[in-house]
Design a protein around this nucleic acid. Structure first.
Lengths: 343, 343
DNA sequence: TATTGCTCGGACAACGTTGTCACAATAGCG
DNA sequence: CGCTATTGTGACAACGTTGTCCGAGCAATA
């Protein structure tokens, strides 16, 4: 083809060796910083490397040496989601400190795709994996674990596999938040959640029940609604609940997407129902409605997981551990009501 | 060490061949779907693959076959930033359609780091690169381009390198937005921007001047402020400008981080200055202040770039092109003033 | 039955690198 | 001055895969 113009081959160590007038092995030594090479030769080799623009081929390198691709994999649900983006950012930061590349893949909450991606990453011989599980059976990873690929599960536990896990205190956070609502005298609390198939949602709902049951609040199915996917859904559900003869005096939304919809509807109606939301969000203080959020440090979550992973990669073979990170209740919003500036 | 427990070697094609009682090459053929292999042998091989849990070693594969690591690289400034997260999500989606892995790396706006990461990705023999430039000299990539690694620059043009580029119509968008402010009678417009070192900021400011100059609006240095890094900065600058004897009647903020700060201050003061902001943001409609945003489709931006990249990977050797995507003026906010529900 | 044509399996080399080993050159010692 | 350590260097093989090529096996044809 006429389009091959300028299509040269990449320089290899052999080219560098020829250029520098040394042996292949000497180049290898210089490139890998092996000591006991004459300073003069080192210089000649480095000069040749620079002139030819040589870069070591990591495929060949990791093929030969068996290990250490200087790459870790991160499997999340969806990169575009700010929660996962924050996780990816924090993981990337830690990886950078270890001179390691980060491969990010999105499962899109599809267990089959999750499996495919994880196996693909393992086939690429990543040095380790951080996984936010989508499916609920990860026993297919056992072979990889036994082959020595360390992995840390993040935000949700693995299914059918004993492994390192870093979680939020979903249940405790929800319990504390709802307890506050109860302490404030609320007895009819609307609860909105995405899906009970998700571990975090189940935990949060359990936490709410932990707080409601001892307070003697009866269980009212009409006040717990799952399948709330987006803010529009949420607004509709809130509207329905408020139109009932005995409307809730408070709402607990189990994630921030739902919280946004709830705020919108409450604000639109000029309601004064209390609102508790799991997850903080960055424009929370601009929101024209007072609310309490169950906040946590997403970066810390990812950082803890990534650092644990690197400890494993570094050779820590101790028993798998589960780390649970705390949450915190924070008052937010109501800037529309002339809240002052935060310090 | 006693810790080697369970540390088996990964199965190779040789193992599979032995197990299936065929030759190594036959396994290779089956694994690569080469036709003309006896159906019975195919079955035996596949059975052995499944039993042993064999996965092809991509290092060896791409080493031998020279190309096609089925991986593309994306270099952005910061994964945790929603703009880049959205880009990453869209790029990942397109990559998935092409059965390709996406490696994401963050330059953190550091040109040295950018260079390092790009060269690292090239060394890993990615099939192509998408780059949001941080530095302003990318001539060091020329060697890679000549070696046949396609690359597409996104959001900002490359420096010192002729290459495919996908941009927003920053200048046109700013021009249209500011023209509307001018048409509405505004003559004193406060302009807040991050840094003139950034290409997009320069373009947006140029667009503003395009609209102001013909309208005979004099240039007032005190109304253009750069170095506005975050919402707190922005709020302070707005406050200062409003305290002047002839305060601006409108503000133009050149990115959404700044916009948030401006909103907060305007709302806090109960000001009625008009507000125009570059970049839309997802909670915009919840915002308690009316504003116009210069919006665009971030996903489309990334999609266009990624698809162009895959066309190049597919063999398109036509002249490098520059794609400019349109922006759109959208009215937002003021939900605090009882705006109705969007349909 | 012998020849041709065709299909498909297997031996072998090679991709670029690194570990092993051996050897050459130098320094240190008696 | 000869011997052993020590240091520096290179030949060679191997990592796991795939491209090349040859030839075995078989059917169709003369």
């Amino acid at each position: 083809m006429a389009s091959d113009v300028g299509r040269t081959k990449r320089p290899t160590m052999v080219d560098v060796a020829t250029r520098a007038g040394v042996s292949l092995k000497t180049v290898s030594r210089v490139v890998n910083n092996v000591p006991h090479v004459q300073p003069e030769l080192v210089e000649r080799v480095l000069a040749a490397v620079a002139e030819l623009g040589f870069r070591r081929n990591p495929s060949a390198s990791s093929l030969r040496s068996g290990q250490a691709t200087a790459t870790i994999g991160l499997l999340i649900e969806e990169i575009a989601n700010p929660f996962y983006a924050t996780i990816a950012g924090a993981a990337a930061e830690v990886a950078r400190l270890h001179d390691t590349m980060l491969i990010i893949a999105s499962s899109e909450e599809d267990p089959a795709r999750e499996r495919q991606l994880l196996q693909d990453m393992c086939a690429r011989r990543v040095d380790g994996l951080i996984v936010v599980p989508a499916g609920d059976d990860h026993s297919f990873l056992r072979a990889e674990v036994e082959l020595g690929t360390p992995m840390v599960f993040l935000d949700r536990p693995a299914g059918g596999l004993i492994a390192d896990t870093v979680l939020l205190d979903n249940r405790g956070g929800a319990r504390a938040g709802v307890r506050r609502l109860v302490d404030d005298g609320h007895r009819r609390i609307g609860v909105l959640l995405d899906s009970l198939n998700v571990y975090t949602m189940r935990e949060r709902l359990d936490g709410a029940q932990d707080a409601l049951a001892p307070a003697g609040v009866p269980y009212d199915t009409r006040l717990v609604r799952d399948g709330v996917r987006d803010p529009v859904d949420a607004a509709r559900v809130v509207s329905e609940m408020l139109d009932r003869p005995d409307p809730p005096t408070a709402f607990f939304s189990l994630n921030n997407r739902i919280t946004l919809g709830v705020i919108e509807e409450l604000h639109r109606r000029g309601s004064d129902a209390a609102l508790l939301g799991f997850d903080d969000f960055d424009v929370a203080r601009l929101v024209p409605y007072p609310l309490t959020v169950i906040a946590y440090d997403t970066r810390e979550l990812a950082r803890a997981a990534t650092e644990l992973l690197f400890r494993r990669i570094g050779g820590d073979r101790s028993w798998p551990r589960t780390v649970v990170l705390p949450t915190e209740l924070v008052a937010r919003g109501a800037s529309a009501r002339r809240a002052g500036h935060a310090p």
